[in-house]
Design a protein around this nucleic acid. Structure first.
Length: 112
DNA sequence: GAGCTGACAATAG
DNA sequence: GCTATTGCCAGCT
């Protein structure tokens, strides 16, 4: 029953993403696809970006820990420029290359 | 109230 | 192997 419960899944996705991002350990980074997959949307990477963009400030989410699957910072927004993200990650203890590239094989967080 | 945009990822050609 | 297109859904206009 409660077949309509799936409707709640949609809104739950936002909440799910927030919870996942907040569960990321300090000094670890993950990708949009990973967060989206854990939230139940293997191809919802775009949503993660959109949700983080607004909720990061409201829920105080570490958006800097979320990068694309290339281990590269995708942020195009002036409020989330790469330099800022790089600085935040370095404060977390994460090493960021001069090209803003991050070693996911070393700092990658996959829902653990 | 309805439509468009958007911090990506995966699949197909 | 690289390029182009599609799909996902929340938030804003």
């Amino acid at each position: 029953m409660l077949a309509r419960g799936q409707s709640s899944s949609r809104r739950n996705f936002k909440y799910k993403v927030i919870q996942i991002v907040k569960k990321i350990s300090n000094g670890r980074v993950t990708t949009y696809g990973t967060v989206a997959t854990l939230a139940g949307l293997p191809r919802g990477g775009r949503l993660v970006g959109g949700i983080l963009h607004f909720n990061s400030d409201k829920y105080n989410l570490p958006w800097q820990r979320i990068i694309n699957k290339d281990g590269f910072i995708s942020t195009k927004c002036p409020e989330h420029m790469k330099a800022l993200q790089k600085a935040l990650l370095e404060q977390e203890g994460i090493e960021v290359s001069s090209d803003f590239m991050i070693d996911l094989d070393k700092y990658g967080w996959w829902g653990k």
